[in-house]
């Protein structure tokens, strides 16, 4: 009984902060999502009509598709490269390891806005380094940020194949934003994996070596399973965060990209709220996004946590 009270006391400070600054605003926004509100003193109750309008809006479902492209583009690549780098950088006795760790972490600490501005210059069609490089190898420059064609469709164009819409892939413009996301996330994954790797006792590897396991085997049998709590954390975090990507989109394509192909959910939501002052509609959008993330996270926790190895 007493022990249980202690547990609640331990949670209290965090619960207080989250309660005041997160749950209350959340409830408030939920209430707003049933109204029409332009930030003025009056609000009109409109029932479910915001949700109804969203569900039939092709713009909204397009933005869901673009968001999914973004998540699927950023997540696996960042995790795999991050793990690879962490394995290369785990040995603290290696010369220059601190130097490399710092370098790979640099993109993470850069302000996302500054990074996006830098990328938009590098990918400037007329003046950017990317096209300069392509040009100096004799290739055709690419109109990165104004190209609305899906990248998979572009590949299949050569064979004269027209892919179904959903499989056409992110537009070239969105791909540039995905690249930026990968560039900024790799370091995050690396550092978290490094922290996770430190938790694996060296003795396990020694025991495995005595048993005659090679590198590949001990990686599969020891490293991967023991890293699974870390992987789960990264998987859940990256899904949640990249589902809400906004800053880079806003900076690199402030108008939502060529033919709106970079308008991810939160971009549309922000536009509805802070450009058109339709807070009810935007809130409804936020809660639809919320339910999608919730379902994905629940599935991740339910199906993957079962396979996660805790000590």
């Amino acid at each position: 009984m007493k022990k249980r009270a202690v547990a609640y006391l331990f949670i209290l400070p965090a619960a207080l902060v989250l309660g005041i600054f997160m749950f209350y605003p959340l409830a408030y926004s939920f209430m707003i999502s049933f109204t029409q509100w332009d930030l003025s003193a009056t609000r009109t109750y409109v029932g479910l009509s915001n949700y109804r309008a969203l569900i039939v809006s092709p713009d909204f479902w397009n933005s869901v598709l673009y968001t999914v492209y973004y998540v699927l583009g950023v997540l696996p690549v960042s995790l795999v490269i991050g793990l690879g780098l962490a394995l290369l950088l785990r040995d603290s006795s290696m010369r220059g390891v601190g130097f490399f760790r710092t370098i790979y972490f640099m993109p993470v600490v850069t302000s996302p806005i500054a990074a996006a501005m830098g990328f938009s210059w590098i990918f400037h069609t007329q003046l950017g380094y990317a096209n300069h490089l392509i040009d100096s190898f004799g290739g055709e420059p690419v109109n990165w940020l104004t190209n609305y064609n899906g990248i998979f469709q572009l590949l299949f164009d050569r064979f004269g194949v027209e892919l179904p819409r959903v499989l056409q892939g992110p537009s070239v413009a969105l791909t540039v934003i995905i690249l930026l996301g990968i560039w900024q996330n790799i370091g995050y994954a690396t550092v978290v994996y490094l922290a996770g790797l430190q938790g694996i006792p060296q003795t396990y590897y020694e025991a495995a070596r005595i048993d005659g396991a090679n590198w590949g085997k001990s990686f599969r049998r020891i490293t991967l399973p023991l890293l699974s709590p870390t992987t789960l954390f990264l998987l859940v975090m990256f899904t949640i965060l990249s589902f809400q990507v906004f800053g880079p989109v806003q900076v690199m394509t402030p108008q939502g990209g060529p033919l709106q192909t970079t308008s991810v959910i939160v971009f549309r939501l922000y536009q509805q709220a802070f450009a058109f002052y339709r807070f009810g509609y935007a809130s409804a959008m936020a809660f639809l996004a919320f339910s999608m993330i919730l379902i994905i996270t629940l599935m991740q926790l339910k199906y993957i946590e079962r396979r996660v190895h805790y000590d």
């Binding site: 605003p25 926004s29 707003i32 930030l39 919320f290």
Partner: peptide, 18 residues
């Protein structure tokens, strides 16, 4: 965990009011 799943932009105005 759920507090992370709602787009933070929509919480800004109520947070500001608080």
């Amino acid at each position: 965990l759920a507090t992370m799943m709602i787009p933070q932009q929509i919480l800004m105005i109520p947070q500001y009011l608080v």
